[in-house]
Nucleic acid binder design. Structure first.
Lengths: 70, 70
DNA sequence: TATTTATGTAAAGTGCGCTTTACGTAAAGG
DNA sequence: CCTTTACGTAAAGCGCACTTTACATAAATA
């Protein structure tokens, strides 16, 4: 899964740590999600979309590998 | 998290097993997600929304308990 | 130069998403 | 009746989402 979180985050002028605090997760979690190391849970993805005033589909993108994994 | 999956599923005339096959997951997974026993992964949620031609936000709803858990 | 801010990696632990297998129940149709 | 279809519960196992802690680097600034 790829995502546009860094773009939206910088647009708002948030650091990774600031965003982590707003989301109620660790800074490591934000880093790992931005880098695509793993996928956020659904509740977390919904909250991220809420914070950036957009939709989950606008922020996260399935890749071929995602379809195969499930 | 609550969801509208049963409604959309019945609208399409799919059994839980049929939906599970389409999603590439087990029937147990569909049952558990519909009943709210646990949340689908983000890739799975995106694929479900795709199948029902709607958005993740239309299908899944955060509750107070979700915000507290994270 | 020393410190602060922002970003990144690594590694070990916990809980949950999803699987498989098995069993139970109710409705519908042969 | 008997079988099929659809839905449901239970339980054990695996891998990943997320945590915490520690350490590293580069840029900005005092």
């Amino acid at each position: 899964m790829k995502n546009k979180i860094p773009t939206y985050r910088k647009q708002k002028g948030y650091s990774q740590e600031k965003l982590a605090t707003m989301l109620g997760v660790s800074r490591q979690t934000v880093i790992s999600i931005e880098k695509g190391k793993y996928n956020p849970s659904l509740p977390l993805a919904l909250i991220i979309a809420e914070i950036f005033e957009t939709k989950v589909e606008e922020l996260f993108f399935l890749e071929d590998s995602d379809y195969k994994k499930i």
